[in-house]
């Protein structure tokens, strides 16, 4: 909530005082996107939702195959489907696809860091590595 409403913005790029010219974007700034116009239309959102629903159904169905197929294969399949759902929500509903690359980089940094660190962590406890 705090983040959502604390809309204080100090325009660092404000050059009006002294320069007397219109504000110019700060050096290194990416071209500004008029977000409202590039967000997809509701129809697309619904389409994504349909895909998500189908994927969920397939996921649940897949989980019932337990015992009939190789469980590693099952885990990989479920993991891939979860990742696809994750990607769809992040890319479309959270607008990462259209929004500035800054968000993508930051979020991916956290995500990759989490996966790598916790991946190594779990690897620790696998019987081959943890052997005193």
């Amino acid at each position: 909530m705090t983040e959502g409403t604390d809309l204080v913005t100090v325009p660092a790029g404000e050059t009006s005082v002294g320069a007397g010219t219109a504000p110019e974007p700060a050096a290194g700034a990416t071209p500004v996107l008029a977000e409202a116009h590039t967000h997809p239309a509701p129809r697309q959102y619904v389409l994504i939702a349909v895909v998500l629903v189908i994927l969920t159904a397939v996921e649940v169905a897949t989980s019932y195959l337990e015992g009939n197929v190789n469980s590693n294969l099952l885990i990989v399949a479920l993991g891939v489907m979860a990742a696809v759902k994750f990607f769809l929500v992040v890319a479309w509903y959270m607008h990462m696809k259209q929004d500035s690359h800054v968000f993508r980089r930051l979020f991916l940094t956290g995500l990759i860091l989490a996966s790598v660190v916790y991946g190594i962590l779990l690897l620790f406890f696998s019987s081959t590595v943890l052997k005193s």
Binding site: A12, A26, A27, G28
Partner: peptide
Amino acid sequence: VATAVNFLVTILNMRAPGMTM
């Protein structure tokens, strides 16, 4: 964490004109 977010946004977003990274 609140302070860290604040610093990050300040440094990334609020530099004076010409103050590149």
